[in-house]
């Protein structure tokens, strides 16, 4: 199993697209945080304090979008290239293979977030604020729980769904998770059968904002509530478990 995960991860990090996307992400990050060209609510973001929240939000956003992109094609590509068949004839069971590919996707997605974080660390050094790096890193690691969840979900869906639909669904789930609070309010106000469906959907959408809140608490030194983080771990575990029972017909 470990060998499968390592191979899946190696395969991913050999992919040039990953680096190109990560470099573009880093450049966007650096442009936003170091050039002082960003404006929020008519106010120029020029100081270090103003740029830190922007930087972390950008890492979170780009990291999650990268997770969707990374996880989208791994499993379908394996099927297309018939690698799956080659692996399965060697006695590896389908669930082991799906699980390993999903874990590989999760690890690669987290690595991407850490690469993006390197640019943020560069930004901290640029401003002479090296002391913030460990706290920000821990905060980013908490945020990478969200990245892992989105990567796991997109990987699971990719076993069954076409890439285009899966990509849209992945991004939709990400934004629904980020705006979980507001959408739950809206769902609560919806009437009739539609309302019941929407409320049901909001129950299964992972609460990304709860994890973001805890990451932010850690960054600014407020007490951290462990519960939302553990719930996110449970969510990853649940999705990973579903890879044991989700197959394609051709397998």
């Amino acid at each position: 199993m470990t060998a499968l995960i390592i191979n899946s991860f190696r395969e991913k990090i050999r992919n040039k697209t990953l680096y190109v996307t990560a470099i573009v992400g880093m450049l966007v990050m650096l442009m936003l945080t170091c050039t002082g060209g960003l404006e929020i609510n008519g106010q120029k973001m020029i100081s270090f304090k103003q740029m830190v929240p922007v930087g972390i939000t950008v890492i979170n956003l780009i990291g999650s979008l990268l997770a969707v992109m990374i996880s989208l094609n791994t499993i379908p590509n394996e099927f297309e290239r018939k690698t799956t068949h080659l692996v399965l004839v060697r006695g590896i069971r389908p669930w082991q293979y799906m699980f390993a590919l999903t874990v590989g996707n999760i690890i690669t997605s987290i690595l991407c977030v850490l690469i993006l974080f390197a640019s943020f660390a560069g930004f901290c050094i640029f401003w002479g604020q090296v002391g913030l790096i460990p706290r920000a890193l821990a905060s980013i690691i908490m945020l990478s729980l969200n990245t892992a969840v989105i990567s796991a979900i997109v990987s699971l869906f990719s076993i069954k769904l076409p890439a285009f639909i899966n990509g849209i669904l992945g991004i939709l789930i990400y934004f629904m998770g980020v705006f979980h609070n507001m959408l739950t309010v809206a769902a609560g106000a919806a009437d009739g059968a539609g309302g019941v469906v929407v409320r049901g959907v909001m129950h299964i959408i992972p609460d990304f904002i709860a994890v973001q809140n805890q990451a932010s608490n850690f960054l600014v030194g407020n007490p951290v509530d462990i519960y939302p983080l553990v719930v996110q771990l449970l969510c990853i575990y649940f999705v990973l478990t579903l890879t044991f029972v989700t197959f394609r017909k051709e397998v």
Partner: peptide, 14 residues
């Protein structure tokens, strides 16, 4: 925009 970024503001106090 503020809602999105204020979460990680360093001067956010308890």
């Amino acid at each position: 925009d503020e809602l999105f970024t204020a979460q990680f503001a360093l001067d956010k106090e308890a």
